[in-house]
Write a protein that binds this DNA or RNA. Structure first.
Length: 467
RNA sequence: GGCCCGUUCGUCUAUCGGUUAGGACAUCUGGUUUUCAACCAGGAAAGAGGGGUUCAACUCCCCUACGGGCUACCA
């Protein structure tokens, strides 16, 4: 069983956007499969017709695509397998591992109320469990599994270890509803089995379900998959991540401009470790990822660390890839796309932009000088460094720039000597230069801007502010 | 209520019976600097509490506290 090719799956229910916790679950499944030459499948758990929406399904696809988590084959719909699920329920019935229960929901509710009132277990004990078919009424029924009354059910979990339940704690859960539709508990097992899933990696809110689902595997005589129940991601206050904490959906992080590579790295490291390694490539993540190094306790989401990791990824990213990522970012956030000239400029400037930004918006902000055309309209802050004295200095500096050879070293030398000759600090001349070139107080180095802009454009911008 | 899971610096984590309990982010102090980012040097910062087991426990066992999950004809 361990030498079978790995098959993992991500099985979200389409009732909202792709939650950050779901994204990490998907990521772990993807990493595990991709690192072992296995398959990563996507199944949409849409059996709850009332809550499932096509928009949510689209959001899940979009979120996974943004994160770069590609799945094998087409995504499947759980709902479409309803007939197959029902057939399995009836097969369990035929095998004597399930039974028809004619209890009404009112009867069950009354049982639970009474049980709770008396402090007994609220697990429903159906009176129909051992009733012969000949004595069945002609009435609506559900199909329940026959949970063993004694002994125990053991889950060997790659993250949680060995977890044991006394069988009398397991209820005869419903597999087929009275309207003939399958419940989630049945459908997951059938689908995972039919899809050949070898490793079920999911949130630990499903840990207890694993025991109940084992009943179905056993009833059908199917191999139980390898389990790995991973702890949930919490907000900064340790509570389950929710809207109160700010962004919860991956599309929000995309809109905030976190690069996907940084997001993957951060999410991978959240709850999983490989010694002291914090910053790594996708390739390393795939090679290193394993189930045994997943932590057992929930981890808190830390935006500061996310930013730090993202900054490191941007700094080493390929220039063209970053330009492409910015293009999709602008499109995804409904902003105007860049012109060919702007794209070319951005590409030329990328070397000095990427190492000073942690998010895409920060990078775009610093790229202002290359994305804007003359005449530059200085913002309020930068305008302050363009008073009379500064303008005079720029005017004096200009001739020097007309003749110098246009290279980083020579430019630095010229400006430094100019500052020295005027008995002033480099900063005193750099700020007005920055204001003239970028119209902002924050930008790349003035020398980098001059190089990227070129001599003509630089001189033109300097001329613009000299009045 | 019942069952199950968890608990190392503020945060993410390393450690898998013997360490001055390590790293990273954040934070603080210096330095560098042309703004931002970065960089260099240094500081502060942790084993929830209580019992065991052991020559030795963060590490194994038990109890308590706290946090979380499940307990649906939801997924």
């Amino acid at each position: 069983m361990s030498d079978k090719p790995v098959v993992t799956r991500f099985a979200p229910s389409p009732t909202g956007t792709l939650h950050i916790g779901g994204a990490r679950t998907a990521l772990f499944n993807w990493l595990f499969a991709r690192g072992r030459g296995g398959k990563f499948l996507l199944r949409i758990e849409d059996t709850d017709r009332a809550r499932s929406t096509p928009e949510a399904t689209a959001a899940i696809y979009a979120g996974l695509k943004w994160l770069g988590l590609d799945w094998d084959g087409d995504a499947t719909s759980q709902f479409e397998g309803a007939a197959r699920h029902a057939a399995v329920a009836h097969e369990m019935l035929a095998r004597g591992h399930a039974y028809k229960c004619f209890a009404t929901q009112d009867e069950i509710q009354a049982f639970r109320d009474a049980a709770r009132g008396e402090g007994r277990s609220t697990l429903y004990q159906s009176p129909w469990r051992d009733v012969a078919p000949a004595d069945h009424p002609d009435a609506p029924y559900v199909i329940r599994v026959k949970a063993p009354k004694s002994g125990e059910t053991v889950i060997m979990d790659q993250v949680q270890g060995r977890v044991v339940w006394k069988n009398d704690q397991l209820d005869d859960m419903i597999c087929l509803r009275s309207d003939g539709t399958p419940t989630y508990m049945l459908a997951v097992v059938v689908d995972d089995h039919d899809m050949g899933v070898t490793h079920v990696i999911r949130g630990d809110d499903h840990l207890a379900n694993a025991a109940r689902q084992t009943l179905v595997y056993n009833a059908m005589g199917w191999d139980v998959p390898v389990w790995a129940h991973i702890p949930l991601i919490h907000g900064p206050d340790g509570k389950k991540m929710s809207k109160r904490h700010g962004a919860t959906g991956v599309e929000e992080y995309q809109a905030l401009g976190y690069p996907a590579a940084g997001m993957r790295n951060y999410l991978t490291r959240l709850g999983w470790s490989h010694g002291d390694d914090e910053f790594f490539s996708d390739e390393q993540a795939r090679d290193w990822f394993n189930l045994g190094s997943i932590g057992k306790s929930p981890s808190r989401f830390d935006t500061k660390k996310l930013e730090n990791i993202c900054g490191q990824h941007m700094a080493v990213a390929d220039d063209a890839a970053l330009v492409a990522e910015i293009t999709t970012f602008l499109a995804a956030t409904g902003r105007e796309k860049l012109s060919d000239d702007q794209n070319a400029g951005l590409t030329r400037a990328m070397y000095c932009l990427k190492e000073r930004s942690k998010t895409l918006p920060q990078l775009i902000d610093k790229a202002y000088f290359i994305l804007t055309d003359r005449p530059i309209e200085p913002d309020e802050k930068s305008a302050r460094s363009l008073e009379t004295v500064s303008r005079g200095m720029l005017k004096e500096l200009t001739p020097h720039l007309q003749t110098v050879s246009w290279g980083r070293d020579t430019l630095e030398t010229v400006v430094a000597e100019f500052a020295l000759a005027h008995d002033t600090k480099l900063g005193k001349i750099a700020q007005p230069l920055r204001a003239a070139l970028a119209g902002r107080t924050v930008s790349p180095s003035v020398f980098d801007m001059m190089l990227v802009l070129g001599r003509d454009e630089t001189l033109a911008r300097l001329g613009d502010v000299q009045g």
